[in-house]
Simulated assay, not measured.
Amino acid sequence: MIRYALTRLGLLVLGLAVASVLIFVSLRVLPGDVAQVIAGTQATPEQIAALRASLGLDAPLWTQYADWIGGLLRGDLGTSLLTGTSVSAELIDKARVTVPLSIMSLTIALLIGIPFGVLSALGRRRAAGAALSVAAQALAAVPVVWAGLMLVVVFAVGLGWLPPQGFPRAGWNDPAAAFRALVLPALTIGVIEGAMLLRFVRSATLQAIGQDYVRTAAAKGLTRTRALLSHGLPNVGLSVITVLGLQIAGIIVGAVVIEQLFTLPGVGRMLVTDVASRDLPKVQGELLAVTGFVLIVGFVVDLAHRLIDPRQREAE
Rank of each mutant, 00 (worst) to 15 (best):
Q42E: 05
I209L: 14
T242F: 03
A147W: 14
G254Y: 07
L111T: 04
P100E: 00
I92Y: 12
D93I: 13
A289G: 03
L303Q: 06
G113S: 04
I92C: 04
K94M: 01
T107P: 02
A5E: 07
G15Q: 06
A176T: 13
G148C: 03
R52G: 07
V301S: 00
L55N: 01
A109M: 07
T63V: 14
T7N: 07
A135G: 06
V240H: 09
P115G: 02
I92E: 14
L233H: 13
A315K: 14
A49E: 03
P143V: 08
L106F: 10
V29M: 14
V253Q: 12
S88T: 12
Q42G: 06
I296L: 15
S203F: 13
V257D: 02
T98F: 08
T85V: 15
P281Q: 00
L122M: 02
L22E: 08
T41I: 14
I112V: 14
E90L: 12
Q312V: 13
L110G: 00
M1E: 09
E259M: 06
M196A: 13
R124C: 00
V275R: 05
A156I: 05
S20Y: 10
L280G: 02
E46T: 12
G254S: 06
M270G: 12
E286R: 11
G190A: 00
V142K: 15
L30M: 15
A249T: 12
A219H: 06
S80V: 12
S277P: 03
D174N: 15
F293C: 00
F293Y: 10
L82D: 04
L73G: 03
L6C: 06
L288E: 06
L14W: 12
A121T: 09
I248Q: 05
V297Q: 03
A186W: 06
E316N: 11
R202E: 00
I108D: 08
S88M: 07
R215V: 05
L184V: 10
V21E: 07
S120E: 03
V294K: 15
W161D: 01
L72D: 04
V21T: 08
I248E: 07
L6G: 02
V97P: 03
P164K: 14
V290Q: 07
V283N: 06
V191S: 07
L206N: 10
D274S: 15
A128R: 15
I258N: 05
I296C: 09
I23F: 10
T63A: 12
V154C: 00
V191K: 11
E259Q: 04
T223Y: 09
I251V: 15
R226S: 08
G40R: 13
S86W: 11
Q247Y: 11
A138H: 08
L238W: 08
W161A: 02
L27V: 10
A53K: 14
V152P: 11
P31V: 15
P100N: 02
A19I: 13
D93M: 11
G160H: 08
F24C: 05
A43H: 03
R169P: 10
T85W: 13
L182V: 02
A39N: 00
A5K: 04
Q42D: 01
G266I: 10
L139A: 04
G71A: 01
L9V: 10
I48T: 00
V29P: 10
L187I: 07
S26C: 01
F179E: 01
A95I: 06
